[in-house]
């Protein structure tokens, strides 16, 4: 169980990025955090990862308080962030430094085969396409077999086709060991394809606005009517989250930009 208890974050400039976020995430659950820019969704993910400790409240995994990066928690960033001086295999095995060479090689080979890049093991990262690089990044995060995998807008830099492909692929990989997934996105389709539960956040300060359970059977057909219904529900929730966060100062600007502001 991953437990967030009134997690808050105030940056040194005084900006309150997160305020009182409480969330219980069951093992193997896929939670997608969605919201407009500045709603603290990335801050929340970084707090869970231990990269930026929260200023108040706590994050616990199986009761253990997370204050620094933890071996049971893996993270995939928006960019692949592969180490350019290591081969693809070297990158995937980066978290297995202390394992015996034999085991490391086997696990790296298996992971690369699993993401469909077995033939790229000896290649430098610069020779990969964006989608391939992100698959390597996912393999790198999964190879140490984390209990929780965090993904921070992992596919937002990819073209629509590759993005849909990788969403399906991520679900495949998840089915292997069923780690808990926490995915941050601003893409409603992505949220509905992936999520067991969608957490909608509102800005200033970042808070949970509402939670939406998605109980469509997997694999989910992006063209189906139930998918559309879910989409409308999430879009409506996003609009409400902005209304709740509305401040007189930018109400006019928001009216002009309409519901698209959450982008």
């Amino acid at each position: 169980m991953l437990t967030l208890d009134r997690v808050g974050k105030t940056y040194s400039g005084g900006l309150r990025a997160l305020d009182g976020v409480s969330l219980d995430i069951a093992p193997g659950e896929i939670v997608v955090v969605i919201g407009g820019s500045g709603c603290g969704k990335s801050t929340l993910l970084r707090a869970i990862s231990g990269l930026d400790a929260p200023s108040d409240g706590s994050v616990r995994l199986e009761g253990e308080r997370i204050v620094a990066p933890h071996e049971k928690i893996g993270i995939v960033f928006q960019e692949p962030r592969l180490l350019p001086w290591l081969s693809v295999a070297g990158n995937v095995g980066f978290g297995l430094e202390h394992r015996p060479k034999r085991e490391r090689e086997e696990r790296v080979a298996a992971a690369l085969a699993r993401v469909g890049l077995a033939d790229k093991a000896g290649v430098w990262p610069r020779q990969l396409s964006g989608g391939q690089a992100q698959r390597v990044a996912i393999a790198r995060a999964l190879v140490p077999r984390p209990q929780v995998l965090l993904l921070d807008e992992p596919f937002s830099a990819l073209d629509a086709f590759t993005r849909a492909d990788l969403q399906d692929h991520l679900l495949d990989l998840w089915a292997d060991g069923r780690p808990t997934l926490v995915v941050v996105t601003h893409d409603v389709d992505e949220a509905i394809v992936l999520a067991d539960r969608i957490v909608v956040m509102q800005p200033r300060p970042g808070r949970i606005s509402e939670e939406i359970a998605v109980d469509l059977p997997r694999p989910r057909d992006r063209q189906s009517a139930p998918f559309d219904v879910a989409k409308r529900r999430v879009l409506a929730a996003l609009d409400r989250s902005l209304d709740r966060a509305a401040e007189p100062a930018d109400a006019g600007q928001r009216a002009a930009a309409g519901g698209a502001l959450w982008w």
Binding site: L51, P69, L83, W85, F94
Partner: peptide, 27 residues
């Protein structure tokens, strides 16, 4: 910073961070 963060996410610090991230990056 983003590359250094990868090192942090894999719990590297001090000498390990220098050897596995900083040194190759400045080569």
């Amino acid at each position: 910073r983003k590359i250094v963060e990868v090192g942090r996410a894999f719990r590297l610090s001090g000498f390990a961070m220098v050897r596995r991230i900083l040194l190759p990056a400045v080569l």
